[in-house]
Amino acid sequence: MVDTKVTLSGWELDNPVIPASGTFGYGKEFAELYDINCLGSFSFKGTTLNPRFGNETPRIAEIASGMINSVGLQNPGVEHVIAHELPEMKEFFHKKVIANVSGFSVEEYVKTASLLDKEDAVGLIEVNISCPNVHGGGMSFGTDPKAAAEVTKAVKKVCAKPVYVKLTPNVTDITEIAVACEEAGADGLCLINTLLGMRIDLKKKAPILANTMGGMSGPAIFPLALRMVWQVYNKVHIPIIGMGGVTTAEDVIEMLLAGATAVQVGAANLIDPFACKKIVDNLPAVMEKYGISSLKEIIGGAHR
């Protein structure tokens, strides 16, 4: 018997497989297909203080081995999530979930996170700092170490649960932001968010996405994500949840070897609704194949 358990800030997960925010809704569509309690946890749809329609359509474009989305954080707002989505979710998912929080000002992050922190279904708060700061000239919080630290510190102050900061890869040096978040009190880091990209429709000779640009995900970005997890692991002492193009149990193990404690799976859920279940099911056999008896023991194992 292999041991697939991992621990995030004192929270033990049966396995490190976590569907990523924005690719799993609130779990309902997947719970109709299989018992999603086989997952380590899942990160629900990015939540903001107020309801958001998101960007105009088209919001989706295809790339080689991946996709681009510009959904724009469509969500019903934190109050609706707490009143309707979480109670419904608890009926079919009996583990704790990750609450993904977004905002356009420090105050908004603080309010949203503090409300979700009180929910017993929530295991940890994941702060998405890839949003533009309306008070900072529209620049993303996640591209400026000072702004990233400011959000981290403010959210940390109002939350009893572990606060993990989700980093954007659209920066010159991701380790600089990672260190700033750790110093500001982050309990862990999640990386990477999507990479900014675009496609042009040849017939219309115009961008495919209504928003022109969007976030790239899928296997195309896996090596880049792995590299960033590797670099950040070298610089911080807090747990990392690795993500970006993870599709197979082998990818999960690569991420752990690079330094991740758990892994999120994003785009793969959209092309194969059973993707996460398959990864969970395959994990023990792949561990045995590579002579791994416990996942906890291999975290960062490729750093020698």
Partner: peptide, 15 residues
Amino acid sequence: ERMGCGFGACMGCTC
């Protein structure tokens, strides 16, 4: 509409 998943998970095709 251009779709991501086709089964309601990604919000790619909202109107």
